[in-house]
Simulated scan of single mutants.
Amino acid sequence: MTSALILIDIQEGFDDPFWGARNNPKAEENAARLLDHWRVLSAPVFHIQHVSTMPGSPLNPDGGQSAIKSIVAPCRDEPVLTKSVNSAFIGTDLETRLHSCGLRAVTICGLTTPHCVSTTTRMAANLGFDVTLIHDACAAFTTNADTSWRAGTAPTAEDIHRAALDQLSGEFARVIATNEAVT
């Protein structure tokens, strides 16, 4: 079964310290390996770009950091779908494009695991797609949000990443490593 590769929000703005500490510094390299593999297979690739409407967000186009990182830069025949919410299916024609290609399976990677990756993974599964999530081609951050409600030690970026993957594994996606996806 042919699977489309969906690269979510691998953008320059995620290098900004605004997001806090990060896990998995190799996520973009692994995403690039996936992209190279899909290109060799001439399989469908979709780039998703988050265009934030929040003033001051590193992903707001006014800040100059919303571009897709060069390591996974799209080729001219690879569509770039822009969104301003967590799901790559809301406000885009991603579902229509996948169906028009006769695709029933998607492989997802990108930033960030508990946010746009998780939301897109859940929606893809709910829409009936067979979803594979590449855990080592995703990353998470600690949060700079108000956590005064939380008692105890704050989770690390790795804790957040693993918790998101645990919640997706099985019910919403098959979670695997890059090496397994490219063999």
Rank of each mutant, 00 (worst) to 15 (best):
S100W: 06
C75M: 14
I90E: 14
T96K: 14
K83D: 03
R22A: 14
P44H: 04
I108K: 07
S57A: 12
T121L: 03
S57G: 08
H50C: 10
I71S: 14
I48T: 05
D62Y: 02
P74D: 07
L34V: 04
R33Q: 09
L81Y: 08
T107E: 13
T121S: 08
H37M: 08
G91F: 09
P74L: 03
V72D: 11
A88I: 09
C109P: 01
T82Q: 13
L98H: 07
H115I: 12
L35T: 02
W19Q: 04
T120H: 03
G102W: 02
L35D: 00
V45R: 01
A27S: 08
V106E: 11
P61Y: 06
R76Y: 00
H37D: 06
E28S: 06
C116Y: 07
D93Q: 06
T119A: 15
D62A: 15
E95H: 12
L34P: 00
R22T: 12
A32R: 13
A67S: 15
R33S: 05
Q65W: 09
V45K: 03
V45I: 15
A21I: 00
F89R: 10
W38A: 09
T107L: 13
W19Y: 12
E29F: 05
L81C: 05
V72S: 09
F46R: 09
V85D: 05
W19V: 02
L34E: 02
